[in-house]
Design a protein around this nucleic acid. Structure first.
Lengths: 192, 192
DNA sequence: TCAAATACTTGATCTCGGTCAAGTATTTTA
DNA sequence: TAAAATACTTGACCGAGATCAAGTATTTGA
């Protein structure tokens, strides 16, 4: 259960055995079945979730409009409504499982306590967020200026597994495109 | 020169007098005149820049197409090509000054050394990046799903000073819109 | 294993916002 | 302070991608 989390952390910072034992006490395991919700918009997001297995998505649901996907979280990823979690505001995002998932949850208070008790975890999250910023920045640049085809190709390039493992309807939503457009792009790519 | 940086850091972490003195040794002041470049695409981005005064922009320049603005950095903000800085890859972004600016630069090596010598700086950057992620996430959601009008109104709401202080041509580029569209939106808003 | 739900495709049509063009207004700098 | 550069506005037109509609294909779970 903790193996993947610990491996993930050790790739970034060098925690000792004592710290690892302490670390575990801050997390609560949770199973989440396909389609089950971890968070609903309007709630305060009380946990950061680390995905040990399965796939989750975070998304907004504008009444009649299709849901709009914000993030897919695979094994080894973190997911939350970050604004809600950090600023204790109402969540704009929903989070639910696309495939049965196993999670490790840490509450806001424990997140604060963890970084104070194990300062290296500040470093871990600093590096994690650093990488995350790079990815978000790229997504933002592509979202702002690219054609539908370029958006799709960029995803195929940077996240081939997303395109493989996740229904195209959701891929479309993630890219801010309609499912029809993605379908037409895929057809075009088949014939080069 | 260092006042704003130190104030900024102290809002997030509690550095002692000794650490502050040490901290200063890692930074190099630099003046950058309007239109001067701090970074050109293709170079490796060797510095994080803290803006003590003035305004900078980071942007891509797709040959014939208009430049596309990625970020405006005001007094108290950080700016860089983060991917280039962290992963030592060629920069996709240019960075230049919109108004005469005073900067504090820290090199990649010193950034690494700083966080090792003053672990609280890991915490400072962790919190900084946390907030930055929230902003980027919001920008990404808006960029993916909103109309031109919604994009403009969201900027007016979240960054009124940007709209006030920065030419509308650049605002348009920042929002991924054409200057003409922004002009038409502003006209529409005048008549409610 | 089969009905129901979900996912995908394809065509027809529409619309928002981009592009082009030609002007005016403002700022900058020599 | 005047010429040059930059910024902004407005109109006409166009096209990429959304929407609507009506199918087919695949997956899921009782």
């Amino acid at each position: 259960m903790f193996d993947i989390l610990i491996k993930h952390i050790r790739q970034k910072v060098d925690l000792g055995q004592q710290d690892l034992i302490l670390l575990k006490t801050f997390f609560t395991p949770k199973k989440l079945n396909r389609k089950a919700f971890l968070l609903r918009e309007g709630e305060i997001c009380n946990h950061l979730a680390f995905v040990s297995s399965g796939i989750l998505k975070s998304f907004t649901s504008d009444e009649k409009a299709q849901e709009r996907i914000n993030l897919f979280a695979f094994e080894g990823w973190w997911i939350s409504d970050f604004n809600s979690f950090i600023n204790r505001e109402k969540a704009l995002l929903n989070i639910s499982a696309i495939e049965n998932a196993e999670l490790l949850l840490i509450s806001f208070d424990d997140y604060e306590a963890l970084t104070l008790q194990i300062p290296l975890m500040d470093r871990y999250f600093r590096i994690l967020y650093q990488n995350s910023l790079v990815t978000k920045d790229r997504r933002l640049m592509i979202s702002n200026k690219s054609t539908a085809m370029e958006k799709y190709l960029s995803l195929v390039h940077h996240n081939p597994d997303m395109v493989k493992r996740i229904p195209h309807t959701l891929i479309a939503s993630y890219l801010g495109l309609s499912p029809e457009t993605v379908s037409r792009i895929r057809k075009k790519l088949l014939f080069q």
